[in-house]
């Protein structure tokens, strides 16, 4: 009888030890991180709100994180910075508003930590999400047809739509590509992914 309790105590001790080291102490360290405020009074990182937050839900819902990481490694560790994925390494402070974290562990596609800076064109984002083959032939990213509507040209261009050439359109006629509300939110979120500001700890 006694032995089972001493065994359980030992087993509990090992796991609580690692919880302390990998959850509570890091959390305590990161809790003290505050955003930096630039000369225009904008705090970095910026807390996500409104459509950016909704777009984040779409990003999670469609499982983008399984192929795209959101973390830039330092210049001496991989080619992230040389590939233009960021100008400095990512640090814990970049994530203080992230609930949940979306760091990812796979790069079947490129890193997205700064996609808002390195691909600022909404039009590109829509075309790429609708069918990645339009902008990136040979890509293995899945198409997200269901986030869009294709409208034949003829009438006035629907608000927020982008042009779809005959080649790219599933109807094989020049069309308008109309993003749904979720597609717009998702692109708002992608545009918000811009960690170009500088942080001192990124250099040590």
């Amino acid at each position: 009888m006694n032995r089972s309790w001493s065994f359980i105590a030992g087993v509990l001790a090992t796991i609580l030890f690692s919880m302390m080291g990998l959850i509570f102490v890091p959390n305590w360290q990161f809790e003290q991180l505050k955003p930096v405020v630039d000369q225009n009074g904008i705090s970095h990182p910026t807390p996500p709100a409104g459509s950016v937050l909704l777009g984040r839900e779409v990003y999670i819902s469609e499982g983008c994180l399984y192929c795209h990481s959101q973390q830039v490694r330092s210049a001496d560790f991989g080619a992230d910075i040389q590939r233009g994925w960021g100008t400095r390494r990512s640090v814990a402070r970049d994530y203080i508003f992230d609930r949940p974290h979306l760091m990812g562990t796979m790069r079947t596609g490129p890193d997205l930590e700064n996609i808002g800076a390195r691909q600022p064109s909404r039009e590109w984002q829509y075309l790429h999400l609708f069918n990645p083959q339009i902008t990136s032939p040979g890509s293995i990213m899945p198409p997200f047809h269901f986030l869009f509507k294709v409208v034949d040209k003829g009438g006035p261009a629907p608000v927020g739509s982008v042009d779809l050439t005959a080649n790219a359109s599933p109807t094989k006629k020049a069309s308008y590509l109309v993003p749904s509300g979720r597609a717009q939110d998702l692109v708002d979120f992608l545009m918000s992914l811009n960690h170009s500001y500088d942080l001192p700890e990124a250099h040590q």
């Binding site: 590939r83 233009g84 390195r118 902008t135 005959a166 790219a168």
Partner: peptide, 22 residues
């Protein structure tokens, strides 16, 4: 060449662009 990693998102690494789009 490294900076071009950004450009090739639209203009492609072949520099041929996408007919009708880029």
């Amino acid at each position: 060449r490294q900076t071009f990693n950004v450009c090739m998102q639209c203009h492609q690494d072949t520099g041929k662009g996408i007919p009708g789009t880029y």
